[in-house]
């Protein structure tokens, strides 16, 4: 019984505020005749036909949203692999750290959207440019957090791994990556939100397709309800991605919650 109540409570807590906001939007915009602020009912009315029109293969969902998300995943994936690999190397070696740190600080200070016009010169406006922009933007949080995580590994654990002669692969797999995983996940989470922003921005400058491209196109064509529906869809995509992220990170860090609690003397 209490279990059911608790679930109910958490569902209410999670969905409560979004519901209130949607209702408020719905009613305050209900009678709106302002061109730029159409009623929510009108926006939701165009939602289906705008994104999920008849042959699904030719709908905007397939033509615009899917390529956007694929570019995001490609850039994000590259950033994860490169960031973790470089981060482990830099975090493990004091010499490499001293060598790389000033450069890292410099590049980190550059806001990634600035890269779009620069990279357009070299890579054009195709998929490659967008994937590279996303990858570069996502790289820094993953890289810097991985470095911190690897540096923070308990030296006693390192000694233990050494004393029992764990090989390079086993040390990486069972000590370094697992031990740094809390920080790696933190970096990956920051990177995901940066990646979504860059996915949209890279399409707003110049593109042939994409979610950001569609929104700009609607805005330029004064298709205002359609534009709003794109913004909502973007939010939904973000929420879905972060739900997937939550599930994955929860599985990776299952040990960590209890461990942290035990370290703070809690039960």
């Amino acid at each position: 019984m209490t279990g059911v109540l608790r679930v109910l409570r958490s569902v209410l807590l999670t969905l409560g505020l979004p519901a209130v906001i949607l209702l408020a939007w719905w009613f305050t915009s209900a009678g709106s005749t302002t061109f730029y602020n159409p009623p929510l009912s009108a926006i939701l009315g165009t939602f289906r036909e705008t994104w999920f029109s008849a042959p699904l293969g030719e709908s905007r969902l397939a033509v615009d949203v899917v390529p956007s998300v694929l570019r995001l995943l490609a850039g994000y994936g590259i950033a994860l692999v490169a960031g973790i690999a470089l981060g482990v190397a830099i975090g493990s070696s004091r010499a490499l750290r001293a060598f790389a740190e000033p450069v890292l600080e410099f590049f980190r200070a550059i806001p990634p959207p600035v890269l779009v016009p620069v990279l357009m010169l070299f890579l054009g406006i195709g998929d490659t440019m967008k994937i590279v922009v996303i990858a570069i933007g996502c790289l820094w949080p993953v890289l810097l957090n991985t470095v911190e995580g690897v540096r923070g590994l308990d030296p006693v654990l390192r000694d233990t791994a050494r004393a029992y002669r764990l090989g390079l692969v086993a040390t990486l797999r069972h000590l370094v990556l697992r031990g740094a995983s809390p920080q790696i996940v933190t970096g990956a989470r920051q990177a995901l939100s940066i990646g979504i922003i860059l996915m949209v921005i890279s399409e707003m400058f110049a593109a042939k397709d994409g979610l950001g491209f569609s929104i700009v196109q609607f805005q330029r064509g004064f298709a205002i309800p359609e534009m709003w529906s794109g913004v909502i869809l973007l939010g939904v995509v973000g929420v879905l991605l972060s739900l997937v992220f939550r599930a994955v990170s929860h599985a990776v860090l299952r040990w960590y919650l209890g461990y942290r609690q035990s370290q703070h003397g809690g039960a």
Partner: peptide, 30 residues
């Protein structure tokens, strides 16, 4: 090879992301 050590900081020498059995098993796997 062939040497085992129990460090003074025993608590910190166990991998917190592994179960007790996995901790004991890891060096054997290696």
């Amino acid at each position: 090879p062939g040497m085992a050590v129990v460090l003074q900081e025993y608590g910190r020498s166990l991998f917190p992301w592994m179960s007790v059995a996995q901790n004991v098993e890891l060096p054997l796997k290696e």
